[in-house]
Design a protein around this nucleic acid. Structure first.
Lengths: 256, 256
DNA sequence: ACCTGAACACCGTTCAAGT
DNA sequence: ACCTGAACACCGTTCAAGT
């Protein structure tokens, strides 16, 4: 039982057998890794992340779902491949531009492609940034933060935060857009309802209540630029002051 | 078929029948909404979000899984209740403190409680901020951003971004901590491997490679404070300049 | 009013067996 | 080398029926 599993993993991890000009020779379905990723992207774009199951994917490829496991180690790896393929569509900014422009370029590339794939922000946020394209973007961000005056350790942390910041902003935008698209009550209405429902009780929400009129008419584009510029203003207004790498080498700790 | 479903939803939405001093009278399992949420939190803390299934939850409560559906509309609502219960442990800052201190207080409350529940950041990031406690926190953030010089519409957007920023930072921290805890290779090693694996090819990652030595020794606490202060510096260095509410009332649009 | 039993339509994954 | 068939251990949810 152990043995077979081990060899199966070994098979799946040894990929790209020779080239990509090898399929459809004598294989049954002529399934290739790239086909699987392409079909996954199509599925994601059409029906969202919930539809991205091994079984539906196999059906779309005209194959039984266990067939996927010869090409891919498991669903986790499949999702990572999809995530990296998505990031492969993003353009990595040139090194010779000023740091802030590079960070802005990364942001707009994120937004440009992630808004075209359904649920992509959620997908990228959940998966650790593996894969060559994702790491390349990460590397570019680290470089930009380094050039902004952060130490190496700080730049690494900042790049991670930046990534999550962008994914959060874009994810929120796509979530709102999806709500409107599917005809559900626009979120302003939903929140207004909640507010009036609970308003008379002990808790009331003065600021939201005050701003309720503006809830529906937030331009996603302007909001994105605002959030981004606030963050980058913070970046610009700071030289390397904080100290993220402790003196005595110490493991990552979580609060406690 | 339609009718019955409708009444079932009506039943589930009409909750808190009288008070909470009513259960265990003649009911079989004496199941109450609060019990379900409490058991969910315990399950979450012990085995993470993957274990938080209706069936495992029911088992822990000594009940069949369909029983839950009398008390709760579905899994989505269950998760929202759990999320709000978690946020109920956070302290909302006083209004009379300076805006920046309020935002810092919100941040440290987020971090304090989210690091105690497994996968809580992911949970909160995926769910829209419904529920009284979550809305109260959101309201406090909107107030703080308003007092920082943002217009109402801007403050709403900033509060959303702030939430995602915090969830992203804390989520990354807990993810790293989980990797270390479960004995998996610490992420520094993993990334270093990826780097050396792909390094000789066309792509190489100069900045990550340069910073690789610092990857393992990032103090999560210091990193959090760094990211937070950068963001809040950006907030402080900005009066209300941007314009998030468009002149001609226009729906939320995505990209293009 | 509150819960069970049985069923439906799904999942991801393993593994022997086919070709 | 690449794929199928059958199976395992799960999901969330509905709905009639029990008490």
């Amino acid at each position: 039982v152990r043995k077979v599993t081990a060899t199966a993993q070994a098979r799946a991890s040894r990929r790209k057998p020779a080239s990509n000009a090898k399929r459809a020779a004598g294989s049954r379905a002529g399934l290739a890794r790239d086909d699987i990723v392409a079909a996954s992207l199509a599925l994601l774009q059409k029906d969202g992340i919930v539809a991205l199951s091994t079984r539906q994917l196999a059906a779309r490829l005209g194959v039984q779902s266990p067939a996927l496991y010869w090409h891919v180690r498991g669903k986790q790896e499949l999702l990572e491949l999809v995530a990296d393929a998505i990031c492969g569509e993003m353009h990595v900014p040139d090194e010779d531009r000023p740091a802030r422009l590079r960070l802005e370029a990364i942001a707009s590339e994120y937004r440009r492609v992630l808004t075209t794939y359904r649920d992509a922000p959620r997908l990228l946020a959940e998966l650790p940034p593996t894969g060559p394209h994702r790491i390349a973007l990460y590397d570019a961000a680290v470089g930009a933060f380094s050039d902004s005056g952060f130490t190496a350790a700080e730049a690494i942390a900042m790049a991670t935060f930046y990534r999550h910041f962008l994914l959060g902003m874009i994810g929120e935008e796509t979530r709102q857009a999806a709500l409107v698209r599917t005809g559900k009550q626009k979120p302003a209405k939903a929140l207004a309802e909640e507010l009036s429902q609970l308003g008379d009780d002990a808790l009331n929400y003065p600021h939201l209540r005050n701003a309720a009129a503006f809830l529906s008419d937030v331009d996603a584009d302007a909001a994105f630029r605002l959030g981004l510029s606030v963050f980058l203003d913070g970046v610009a207004g700071r030289a390397a002051t904080a100290d993220v790498a402790p003196k005595k080498p110490r493991r990552v700790t979580h609060s406690r």
